[in-house]
């Protein structure tokens, strides 16, 4: 269970990236599945070639930003539907990731990674490990909170909320969308780099279906913990990510087949999206918040489709 919490806290970085596009920009970005692996691949191959782990992890962040930038350019300048733009980049990244890695799986077991000191001290899988990963996730959350309240961040928020309005105040929404997508995928790739170092390998298939985990974290987290202000919304995403991993862990312990996990994830997200629309749930006061979050989500998906 401790491992599940640790994983949840690391994956929270990815979920925060998904929050930036899905909630702030109102853009369901599927680049995530590809850019996550890109981050892992870049970090792994760099570390294997002797690059210091910190630099390798930052390089992963930069590679993710580049991937998001491509999706942004396709969508804004190429006028390609947002979902399709994300899919195109994601598919193209599969080949690129193989090129980066050279083969489908890169083990990191004997390499010096960011987590080696923690592992050697025996902190991984303990309360200290949870503390360390919680601090990392919270620092990134706070940086996002800060950014979204700067002049630039406000224009990013407004881009997702009312494009006509923010353009009338002199902001190029093409530019804000590209920036948002780049930042989001940078975070996703950063998360990929950390996961590769945590589990000790990078794998070509590690990003498949990850967008679901991200969406589930955002939707479930915000349904339970709220999203009235940014500070609460991002905290909810972090907690949602932990909750999601714990639920998956419980499902596995209950004897479910690990091969069914993607199906279970998908069903979980569908339930989270559909359940609050049922009449019985609408009447429950405590779920009013949930309803708002979720119908907003379906509208967003519908508008882009």
């Amino acid at each position: 269970m401790i491992v599940a919490v640790e994983l949840g806290l690391i994956y929270a970085v990815m979920a925060l990236g998904v929050y930036l596009t899905f909630r702030i920009l109102n853009f369901p970005d599927l680049t995530v599945d590809g850019s996550f692996t890109t981050g892992a691949a870049v970090a792994a191959i760099s570390i294997i070639n002797g690059v210091p782990p910190v630099v390798a992890t930052l390089a992963a962040f930069a590679a993710g930003m580049a991937a998001g930038w491509v999706t942004g350019i396709l969508h804004t300048k190429g006028k390609i539907n947002g979902l399709l733009a994300g899919i195109l980049t994601m598919i193209a990244l599969y080949s690129i990731n193989l090129r980066i890695m050279g083969k489908a799986n890169l083990p990191l077991l004997r390499e010096e990674t960011l987590l080696t000191p923690l592992r050697e001290a025996g902190f991984i899988g303990s309360a200290v490990g949870i503390m360390v990963f919680a601090v990392v996730a919270l620092v990134i959350k706070l940086v996002i909170d800060w950014f979204l309240h700067t002049d630039l961040g406000l224009s990013l928020q407004a881009t997702g909320d009312n494009e006509q309005m923010i353009r009338s105040f002199g902001v190029s929404t093409d530019r804000t969308k590209i920036l948002g997508l780049a930042l989001s995928n940078g975070l996703v790739a950063l998360c990929g780099a950390m996961i590769a170092q945590y589990q000790g390998f990078a794998d070509i298939g590690m990003g498949i279906g990850l967008i679901l985990a991200g969406l589930a974290s955002v939707i479930i987290g915000q349904a339970i913990f709220g999203s009235r202000i940014i500070f609460v919304a991002t905290l909810a995403v972090v907690l949602g990510s932990v909750l999601y991993r714990v639920v998956i862990q419980l499902a596995l312990q209950a004897g479910l087949n690990p091969n069914d996990m993607k199906l279970i994830s998908a069903v979980l997200v569908v339930i989270a999206l559909v359940l609050p629309q049922l009449k019985v749930f609408r009447k429950v006061q405590g779920l009013a918040n949930m309803k708002k979050t979720l119908t907003g989500a379906t509208e967003a998906a519908g508008a882009k489709a």
Partner: peptide, 28 residues
């Protein structure tokens, strides 16, 4: 059409205040 509903009054005004300027990382 002229305001951003999910943002606060002061945030909306901060966006308008920076009309046409280069937006950076200063607090809104």
């Amino acid at each position: 059409a002229g305001t951003s509903p999910e943002m606060t009054i002061e945030q909306n005004m901060a966006i308008a205040y920076e009309r046409g300027k280069r937006r950076g990382l200063a607090p809104g």
